[in-house]
Nucleic acid binder design. Structure first.
Length: 816
RNA sequence: GCCGAAGUGGCGGAAUAGGUAGACGCGACAGUCUCAAAAACUGUUGGGGGGCAACCCUCGUGCCGGUUCGAUCCCGGCCUUCGGCACCA
């Protein structure tokens, strides 16, 4: 035994200081090696990193380190997402300024991140609430503004009464509650800033430049919700309405002759104008009722459909029929035109609605053996068109095109593509965010702040307690400004930007973090971007990840970058849970890594997190398994540092076996780390350690092969246990640093098995296992199998019908 | 309701172009060391049955069927869990 035991905290401190002093992990821009940009989602500055953060970050570091050893110039940066509501809320509660709260948190989180021993180049750190950063967030806004990608509009917005701000559609959960605080969201009409993400709806549906999980791609496709259909005009005669038509979007123009009513969303602006006097009271009451209903109730598909008649009618231009217009809250004001045609025979919702209100149900697509009897439910399958005038007899699929063409020829409509996605609402009525760089002047209107005046600084002395009014609006020194055009007194925009704006471009800033002239230079963008491997949680599927794709497309069209996808590869790790719930501060179930790190060491914590299970599946934090990893690292320590008894006359087959194990392990570890299979990577290293330990204790070993084995073990361990590997490397007399060594290569010949276990089955049941040469012939294998003593009792007295042979695997004797 | 992923020992999990189920680790039990305990190390550890014994038999990958010489893996039908979507006209 060595007199020195493995003391993780000591060696970890020692090497972190040394690496820091030597700038070992600085990422040079001028390096001829091929680049690899690995990125893990930066944390929000909540104050402490819990093991959930480590679970996401540490394995990403392992893979980045591996790439580094494979000869890449690796960029693996870290920063902080530091604007946002929690900072403000915490600051209010603790009576300190968000700036100070954030600064303290960053300091603590930076310390924790350093203790992880990752290869972050801290010279490239990015902090989104830093004026040096948000200056460029504002700059992006101005570029978008100048190119028609940012605009202001009065619209009903999602309002969170608890957060006291509006939210983007993406930040409202499916149950109609706020993504952050789970309060029921209400609607408010406000003048708000939007990014025109819908301009890129089709481009965003193209995922051909990307290697992403199918799940995320599907989620984005669904969110964008492209739907091809037909816009159809209906005649409207209403004294109060100028337009004599109303339009609906439908995917079923083939059912146009089945329209027996129209439904309009209660909040549609047309409603007050078309409603007749005698129905006004009833309509207003309904509108009031649906406004009071929460989003949750309204979204429930279980709920019975309700509606009321407006007194108005419109005309189906194809057959001249007048049909009643009703309002009903199952029609969404934000999708299509907010008006739908009711075809009860061929849409279940319309069917239920028509039944309830006694509206006629007219079949226009005949089911296969339809006898003309009334339907008991809507018929939505294909069929032949009936009751449809000139289109009778056509299949409904042909009918879709034919009706659309007919409408188009008469100027009554035509093919239309409709999207579910809406423009990105980025205004927030809160303090802790990047101010929107716009000035309002009575004479010049909406004026962008000149780029030379950026950043528009957040005034540190603002009263930021929420009142529903933007905090900046009450800061006279901030609001009052000279108009950039005419110099007269004007007012600043007082809303701040959604933090997702900050995170839509942070991966660009890392490549040129201190550039005072531009967000990043063209040259460095070309060198590093796009990100080769992005890792993070799947919860950002339709927020951060979609917004970032939009930013990249806009940046490409602005000539800033030459790609459209910011993240070439994406991998989502799972979630670490504690007590059946996701770890979060608000749930109070966070587990801090710090104590484990200071006792068992960061290397053990890193490896244990990988060992829990497949990375993409997450898992329960249970520290009892950590001890097993600690014990293993101790065994590695002893194995490498206690000299083995060596010889030059080890038996040949033992030498071959040792080399085979070494090369097999290199192959397994390499493949596993490439495919994010960290749990089996660790298992492979443990098995290898167990094997080497047994071999060493069994007697003298071949000196050269033993050397190769322990060297390989150290190298394979270096990305996962960087401190332990470095210490062992030094103690075994190698030159600093192990992290600058090349990853070992395996030799397929050496890794190949010489013997295989031939499984012998009788009727599918294993009866014997026989060692045979790996290159055994079929004849020989069958011969060996059939002559097995253990097999005999099962085939004796039976007829052998067949002998199945699987090369290198088994022989199955089928006997009866 | 729809779409997707998953269901394997006491526990986390291995193994799928269909071919030795349970690697690796935790826990448990037994032992070594110790005055004792902890730590460390060694051995055993899916259920049932048999043998003095190296071992042998049998059942077993959520449930019920199917395809196949052979199914944790493929197909059909259920059950459960977890994600996502949910009146999108």
């Amino acid at each position: 035994m060595t007199d020195d035991r493995y003391h993780p905290p000591e060696i970890e401190k020692k090497w972190q200081a040394r690496w820091d002093a030597d700038a070992l992990y600085r990422t040079p821009d001028d390096d001829p090696r091929p680049k690899w940009y690995a990125l893990t989602m930066y944390p929000y500055t909540s104050g402490d990193l819990h093991v959930g953060h480590w679970y996401a970050i540490a394995p990403s570091d392992v893979q980045a380190r591996y790439k580094r050893m494979r000869g890449y110039n690796v960029l693996f940066p870290m920063g902080f997402d530091s604007f946002g509501l929690p900072a403000e809320n915490a600051a209010i509660k603790l009576q300190i300024h968000p700036y100070e709260w954030t600064a303290r948190n960053i300091e603590n989180m930076r310390r924790q991140l350093r203790s992880m021993g990752a290869i972050f180049d801290w010279e490239r750190e990015v902090v989104t609430s830093d004026p040096e950063y948000y200056k460029w967030t504002q700059w992006w806004f101005l570029q978008f503004y100048k190119n028609g990608l940012a605009y202001r509009s009065l619209a009903p917005a999602n309002w969170c009464p608890s957060c006291q701000t509006v939210l983007a559609n993406e930040q409202v959960l499916p149950d109609g509650t706020c993504e952050r605080c789970h309060t029921a969201v209400t609607r408010r009409n406000l003048s708000q800033w939007f990014f025109r993400i819908t301009r890129y709806a089709d481009d965003l549906l193209d995922f051909s430049d990307v290697e992403w999980p199918e799940r995320i791609v599907t989620m984005q496709r669904n969110w964008i919700g492209r739907s091809e259909g037909t816009m159809i005009a209906f005649g409207l005669e209403s004294p109060e309405v100028d337009d004599n038509q109303i339009r609906v979007f439908t995917t079923r123009p083939d059912t146009i002759y089945g329209v027996t009513f129209m439904v309009i969303a209660p909040e549609h602006p047309l409603v007050p104008h078309i409603t007749t006097l005698e129905h006004r009271a009833e309509v207003n009451e309904y509108i009031e009722r649906s406004r009071r209903a929460t989003e949750i109730e309204r979204l429930s598909t279980e709920r019975e459909k309700t509606g009321v008649f407006t007194g108005a009618h419109c005309t189906n231009l194809l057959n001249g029929e007048k049909v009643p217009i009703l309002i009903a809250d199952y029609v969404l004001p934000t999708y299509g035109t907010g008006i739908v045609m009711g075809v009860p025979a061929h849409d279940q919702r319309d069917f239920d609605f028509a039944r309830k209100y006694g509206i006629p149900i007219r079949v226009v697509i005949a089911p296969p053996d339809w006898d003309g009897q009334p339907l008991t439910e809507a018929y939505v399958e294909p069929g032949v068109m009936v009751n449809s005038d000139r289109f009778n007899g056509m299949s409904n699929e042909e009918g879709k095109a034919a009706v659309t063409k007919y409408l188009e020829e008469r100027g009554w409509g035509g093919p239309t593509v409709n999207y579910r996605i809406r423009d990105w609402l980025l205004s927030r009525q809160r303090y802790w965010g990047a101010p929107i760089p716009i000035v309002y002047c009575d004479r010049d209107g909406e004026v962008p702040v000149p780029e030379s005046d950026l950043p528009v600084l957040l005034p540190p002395d603002a009263e930021f307690k929420p009142t529903g009014e933007p905090p900046l609006a009450r800061h006279q020194g901030f609001v009052n400004v000279a108009c950039p055009v005419c110099g007269r007194p004007a007012r600043r925009e007082t809303d701040t930007m959604d933090t997702f704006v900050c995170s839509s471009w942070y991966m660009y800033r890392y490549v040129d973090p201190h550039n005072p002239e531009q967000p990043m230079s063209h040259q460095l963008a070309r060198k590093w971007l796009p990100v080769d491997q992005y890792t993070g949680g799947a919860e950002h599927a339709v927020m951060h990840l979609l917004y970032s794709r939009f930013f990249a497309r806009a940046a490409r069209d602005l000539g800033l970058v030459e790609f459209r996808e910011p993240f070439t590869r994406l991998y989502n790790q799972g979630t670490i849970i504690a007590g059946k719930a996701k770890m979060s501060k608000s749930r109070g179930n966070v587990v801090a890594p710090d104590e484990y790190v200071s006792k068992q060491g960061t290397d053990a914590v890193r490896i244990y997190l990988m060992f829990i299970g497949p990375w993409d599946q997450g898992g329960e934090w249970d520290d009892s398994g950590l001890a097993g990893v600690s014990r293993w690292l101790n065994r590695v320590w002893n194995l490498v540092l206690t000299p083995a008894e060596t010889t030059t006359q080890a038996p040949a087959d033992q030498v071959r076996e040792l080399r085979r194990m070494t090369h097999k392990t290199i192959r397994r570890v390499t493949r596993d780390v490439e495919r994010f299979r960290f749990n089996t990577m660790v298992a492979a290293l443990m098995e290898y350690t167990n094997y080497l330990t047994r071999l060493k204790e069994s007697g003298p070993v071949d000196a050269d092969c033993w050397q190769e084995a322990t060297t390989s073990l150290m190298l394979l361990l270096a990305p996962s246990a960087p401190h332990l590997a470095e210490e062992l490397w030094e103690r075994t007399g190698n030159a600093y640093s192990i992290h600058n060594q090349r990853w070992p290569e395996w030799d397929a010949e050496l890794a190949a098995e010489e013997q295989i276990t031939l499984v012998v089955q009788v009727n599918g049941k294993v009866r014997d296992r026989i060692l045979v040469p790996a290159d055994v012939s079929e004849e020989r294998a069958k011969e060996v199998a059939l002559s097995s003593e253990k097999v005999r009792p099962y085939v004796e007295g039976k007829e052998t019908l067949r002998v199945v042979y699987v090369p290198g695997r088994l022989v199955n004797i089928v006997a009866k």
